[in-house]
Design a protein around this nucleic acid. Structure first.
Length: 333
DNA sequence: CAGCCGTGGGC
DNA sequence: TGCCCAAGGCT
């Protein structure tokens, strides 16, 4: 098989200039800081989901200098509902490093960028190509799909190393910005997972697949999702809610959630059970069965615990990072 | 290094 | 419905 990768690359650029998604918020004003935030938010998260979070984040933290003053909790609060909360913690950790080691200016060298927590090879490549206009390959879901179709192989049949090599070959050194944006736009809008529109694809001629082969088969075995039981005691007074900062390292790390029911046993005499909510919350790998006792207490009380907790004023809950189901529960109170 | 981390959308 | 998976990275 002989494919002219240089030609393909410039076709991507041409296509992007005419047909790319030029109106995405992070493409309007391009700065390393804005590219960074958008790239982190976009990890494993669809564009449509990210847009409102990005706009709100940038409104709150328009510049790296503004962000440099934020606490981890404040950043987590901006992340409420977006998922993969470690990303928010990594943003906090990274901006602390940038403050200490880079004079509060986003580093421009690949080696410095990839050292920042939450930034791997692909995100570092995107930052180089998009923010600093230094050609570097990326390898996200879009690029993997486009490449594997180009050479008519299943993604599953290609090793990570091979995909990186192909991605590296494709990088356009004359306009790495348009290429990088373009290859992602192409994957997202034309070379889609299901029902790609090959007749609208600039690469149709050179594509060995051209959708003549079926979709790449899924190799992941469908495993039984583990069901996790979570029993919560959501305690409220008239004006406040009792929440604790989750100190586990697994799901919802560092987010604010109710205490476990068992932890509230010793305070049962102060609590009036309002109602009980049982529902399932689905994650990709797990099913969470939530069993929430909703209690009313006439006043706030102190707890004997090592866990960090607060009686959070109801009009301040937006200042705290919380997972989706807890946010939903609170809204229904 | 396979498993893990969240949520929403598509089929 | 249930499953895949989306601008991945970390351990």
């Amino acid at each position: 098989m002989k494919q002219d990768f240089k030609k393909i690359s410039s076709q991507v650029v041409d296509w992007y200039l005419k047909n790319g998604r030029h109106n995405l918020p992070w493409r309007k004003k391009v700065t390393p800081y804005r590219i960074w935030i958008s790239e982190i938010m976009l990890q494993q998260t669809q564009v449509k989901t990210v847009i409102p979070y990005f706009n709100a984040f940038i409104k709150k933290y328009p510049t790296l200098q503004k962000l440099s003053l934020a606490t981890e909790d404040e950043i987590l609060a901006s992340w409420s509902g977006l998922g993969f909360y470690r990303r928010a913690k990594n943003i906090f950790a990274a901006k602390e490093i940038i403050k200490k080691n880079h004079s509060n200016k986003f580093p421009s060298q690949f080696d410095s960028i990839i050292e920042l927590p939450g930034i791997g090879r692909s995100t570092a490549g995107a930052l180089m190509s998009l923010a600093f206009l230094v050609p570097q390959p990326i390898l996200d879901g879009n690029v993997k799909r486009v490449i594997s179709r180009l050479i008519r192989k299943n993604i599953a049949a290609l090793k990570e190393k091979d995909l990186w090599e192909l991605s590296t070959k494709l990088v356009n050194s004359e306009d790495c910005f348009s290429y990088t944006q373009g290859i992602m736009d192409l994957g997202a809008t034309v070379c889609t997972k299901a029902n790609p529109t090959c007749n609208a694809c600039p690469l149709n001629e050179s594509c060995l697949s051209a959708f003549k082969v079926p979709q790449q088969v899924n190799v992941k075995k469908a495993k039984n999702k583990k069901i996790i039981l979570m029993s919560f005691a959501l305690v409220q007074t008239k004006k406040s809610l009792l929440l604790t900062k989750n100190d586990t390292e697994s799901i919802w790390s560092s987010l604010w959630i109710p205490f476990e029911n068992s932890k509230m046993q010793s305070h049962a005499n102060k609590l009036e059970l309002t109602r009980n909510e049982k529902f399932r919350h689905e994650l990709t790998h797990r099913s969470l069965d939530l069993d929430v006792n909703i209690y009313f207490s006439s006043k706030e009380f102190k707890l004997d615990t090592n866990q960090k907790y607060e009686w959070i004023k109801k009009d301040r809950i937006e200042d705290y990072g919380m997972p989706k189901p807890i946010t939903k529960l609170i809204q229904q109170l």
